[in-house]
Design a protein around this nucleic acid. Sequence first.
RNA 1: CCAGACGGUCGGAUGGCUGCCCUAAGCAUAUGGGAAACCUGCGGUGGGAGGAAAGUCCGGGCUCCACGGGGACACAGUGCCGGGUAAUACCCGGCGAGGGCGACCUCAGGGAAAGUGCCACAGAAAGCAAACCGCCUGUCCUAACUUUAUUAGGCAGGUAAGGGUGAAAGGGUGCGGUAAGAGCGCACCGCGCCAAUGGCAACAUUGACGGCAGGGUAAACCACACUGGGAGCAAGACCGAAUAGGAGCGACAACUUAAAUCUAAUUUAAAGGCACGUCUCCGUGCCGUCGCUCGGGUGGGUUGCAUGAGGUGCGCGGUAACGUGCAUCCCAGAUGAAUAGCCAUCCCCUUGAAAACAGGGACAGAACCCGGCUUACAGACCGUCUGGUAUU
RNA 2: GCCGCCGUAACUCAGGGGUAGAGUACUCCCUUGGUAAGGGAGAAGUCGUGAGUUCGAAUCUCACCGGCGGCA
Length: 132
Amino acid sequence: MSEAPQRLRYRHEFLRVARGGKKCAMPGLVLQVRKQQILENKQNQKNIRIGFTVSKKIGNSVTRNRARRRLRSVADIVMQKSAASGNDYVIIGRKSTTKREFCALVKDLENALTMLGKARLDGFSKNEGHAK
RNA sequence: CCAGACGGUCGGAUGGCUGCCCUAAGCAUAUGGGAAACCUGCGGUGGGAGGAAAGUCCGGGCUCCACGGGGACACAGUGCCGGGUAAUACCCGGCGAGGGCGACCUCAGGGAAAGUGCCACAGAAAGCAAACCGCCUGUCCUAACUUUAUUAGGCAGGUAAGGGUGAAAGGGUGCGGUAAGAGCGCACCGCGCCAAUGGCAACAUUGACGGCAGGGUAAACCACACUGGGAGCAAGACCGAAUAGGAGCGACAACUUAAAUCUAAUUUAAAGGCACGUCUCCGUGCCGUCGCUCGGGUGGGUUGCAUGAGGUGCGCGGUAACGUGCAUCCCAGAUGAAUAGCCAUCCCCUUGAAAACAGGGACAGAACCCGGCUUACAGACCGUCUGGUAUU
RNA sequence: GCCGCCGUAACUCAGGGGUAGAGUACUCCCUUGGUAAGGGAGAAGUCGUGAGUUCGAAUCUCACCGGCGGCA
């Protein structure tokens, strides 16, 4: 269990992911992905990093805490097997996060990952095309 | 049984599996991250949100700064009395005023006779009282009238009963009295003042006197009494890249006056400005630009950081708040921030005649720590008391 | 976490105890061949919410609600 994912901690990291990454909205959550910076070490690049964002629009601090905990347990289940290494992920809570069933949240995250995986491949091919 | 008042307790319960945060004994001082400081391993004992954790409205502990010395002023807060407390604007017990049939509740509840201000509109008059409509008197004048009487108007007075305005019009009710009236007199009530008694006191009771003076507003200024230095754990301490800023040295530029030197530059003194709430007396510190050197220090890490005005039980003192003695317990410490997911049984609520099924579980998340206040809150339980109804 | 500031017409703001105002915007009329500008008239307000003080509160006091800013 030593491969517990690192957490994003600072505002600029979140802003970097939100600005330059891909985004996918599902009924229970919103997922953002961006590849990590190349300046980091190789060992660091193996890890995936996850951040959670639950804004004040969702509710008071109790409901915000609850939403973040559910998102974290969902990420614990899903990310280890199906997340691509070397990426930064940001999961954003929505108003339905506290009410939605847990299995549905898991499926939401899996679907978002597959969608963004395809999107990322497409983006890479496009970038290469531009480079050429 | 119904309706209600007050006080207190709880804030869904139990179990299983997979995970999270802190942590004791023990094992390793190796690996990894980092520039460094420092963090990190294995292991798993024990523990893991609240009555309001909230609002940040008060009071403290703790930390740093000012802590030069006064004096005057200012600012802010509190305001019946006594007690409790580390302290309070909190709590307890009394007193007074108001509300309720009652249990009981509410009260920024001192001074308006130190002074100043304000009281719009309406109204005659809104503050050393006054006289609009009225009422009354006249041996005054005019008119009606033969005269008296009477009536109307004017003039000169008296009056504060009645009307009207207003939130408020300078005691209230009744009787006497009078030309009409009036504390003018009397009784009761209110008010003021004096004395006695009771009480630590606020105050209460009684008696005598006064003869109504002193409208309201101090959550208007204010006077009186008391209290208060400022900031806050993003306080502070320690370890530590770069940059900016600081100190020393050198160079340059500017300057109000005086003295020293022929001038410049420099030095000294005074003056000026800024800082310590303001002023004053003294006292202290500082006063532009560029280059070099030095120690310090932000982002980062460690600490502050959880044994405390602590909880629980019993006894004693006290009407109570509370104090005190003994025993016992250790009970969250994160820093993008720890309680989640699934399952089972029970409890409660909703839909419903009932069962089953289904859905749901109030308000709400510690961030240095305590004592209060205020605000939010589904429901459940306990105790004391009041009013009504019924029965005995 | 701590410390401050502000809520008044659709918008920007005055008013700091006595009938709540200004500018822009809106509606109607005049002017013009028509529009703009200009002139005239009008409508639009729980003064953030609730208590209290006062005869009387947008104003004074207290408690809430909402918004904004500062401190590493």
